[in-house]
Design a protein around this nucleic acid. Structure first.
Lengths: 249, 249
DNA sequence: CGAGTGGTTGAAATCCGTCAAGAATAGTGG
DNA sequence: CCACTATTCTTGACGGATTTCAACCACTCG
């Protein structure tokens, strides 16, 4: 199966497909059996992959790079609702209209597009495929769940800290203590719902406290994971438990 | 099909099943064909429906009342990650472990429990059921998406305002301008990630500005929807309000 | 080299969380 | 039914955290 002659409205050359296809087959994923149906497209920096309000014609799988799912708030600000990393599926919505705009972040962002109608009709006769679809949806649910947990945190320090931890877990399977953030400070800010300056300051504070090291502006080395998780104010991490929990009501 | 002899740890009398079953059949939903498999249980106020860390044995459908999905933050506070209203499915997770605790809110909370394993094996041979499962998951995605949009807002006024609008949309299909909140201010606070006092104050401000009316502590009448959405600071260019009543300067 | 983007830091104003107290409501037991 | 208690809700005051406005630096790209 060749790449779609015209991947909707994007002007990318379709010849990237052959080049990137091995990247797709190297990475196992739920819809792996349907890779022949996928169109593989490389996107430029900040290019739209799909846009809000348009009919949903594809489901996507991110092969390399990163992408952000954005919404515009009533006050004109941008909110990043979801951050897509290699291995993530995205583009599934409840209705037929896309509820947000998704754009590439880096310059080396490669995406596999699976024609939605096609998959749906295949799933209508093959329960195995149908199950794969729902597992993809469950994975997206899990992603949004952690997003929600991060956004629900109170202080900016906690938000930035847990963001770093989440990125480390998603990018390197939690093995490594080194994270190469694929996004700018601005993106982080819009993802966490704080201002850019606050993100920058939080990183500086975490660095000062020795919780992280900044090898590079976007490369973070995690030194004390617990500090990131708990967002402690005091560097004196005493063993005794702190904090009155008025949780149960 | 009888209700489970012992629905896990809850001491509810199982006889509620027959009584509430007609409520289930009256309300069409994706898994409607499988209602015979469902155990129908009424929960007491604040009673746990399923708890974090336990294996996921059921998927649920909320028939009446309300429920909250909670997580405990590292600082000991409670965060409400999802608010379940009549017509919502819940309990779907990525792994086999429940990632959060779900408890009933009101006293008249009735839930239909569908045995997960059973549904999964049925879906393995019936693509129609499999598709219904994924639509349920998509609906949950849509819910979390709006949740994320609310949490991402900046000021507490915007959060509370959009919360009211969301509740109005979900509870009465967006038709009515009257909302009967099923939850306490504390629940709203934990859902929006702000303090109780802030919720209370925000409601007072919205009332003062004429955006809402409080018919009852938990019954809100929406007067100016746009004010709720935009969280405007200024009362400028409003047709009514002949005299500056008390606008904080 | 200059323009533009991305990143960091400072100072002032604002918003929100905390502490505190009081009022309204619901729940309970006699 | 009433008194009593617990919970929920509201409002005030204060301090801390974050936003905003501003300036400056590093880097890239034309």
């Amino acid at each position: 199966m060749k790449t779609a002659a015209k991947p909707a409205m994007c002007s990318n050359q379709a010849n990237g497909s052959a080049y990137y296809r091995h990247l797709l087959s190297n990475r196992p994923h739920p819809l792996g059996n349907l890779d022949a149906l996928a169109a593989i497209v490389a996107y430029r920096r900040s290019q739209e992959i799909c846009s809000q309000g348009r009919p949903v014609e594809n489901w996507y799988f991110l092969i390399s790079g990163a992408a952000r799912r954005c919404a515009i708030r009533p006050d004109g600000r941008r909110q990043i609702v979801d951050l897509l990393l290699p291995g993530d599926f995205f583009g599934m919505t409840f209705g037929d209209q896309s509820d947000s705009t998704i754009e590439a972040v880096g310059k080396a962002t490669v995406v596999a597009s699976y024609p939605r109608r096609r998959i749906e009709s295949l799933a209508a006769s093959d329960p195995k495929i149908a199950r794969e679809v729902w597992e993809i949806a469950f994975a997206a649910l899990s992603r949004m769940n952690s997003q929600l947990l991060i956004l629900g945190r109170i202080t900016a320090l906690e938000k930035v800290g847990s963001f770093i931890i989440e990125m480390a877990a998603r990018l390197s399977n939690g093995k490594s203590n080194q994270v190469a953030l694929p996004v700018s400070r601005y993106d982080i800010a819009d993802y966490l719902g704080v201002s850019v300056e606050t993100v920058s300051r939080a990183l500086s504070v975490l660095k000062e406290r020795g919780a992280i090291k900044l090898l590079d502006t976007r490369t973070i080395s995690i030194v004390h994971r617990n500090v990131l998780e708990e967002g402690e104010r005091e560097v004196t991490s005493r063993p005794f438990s702190a904090g009155p929990s008025r949780a149960a009501a």
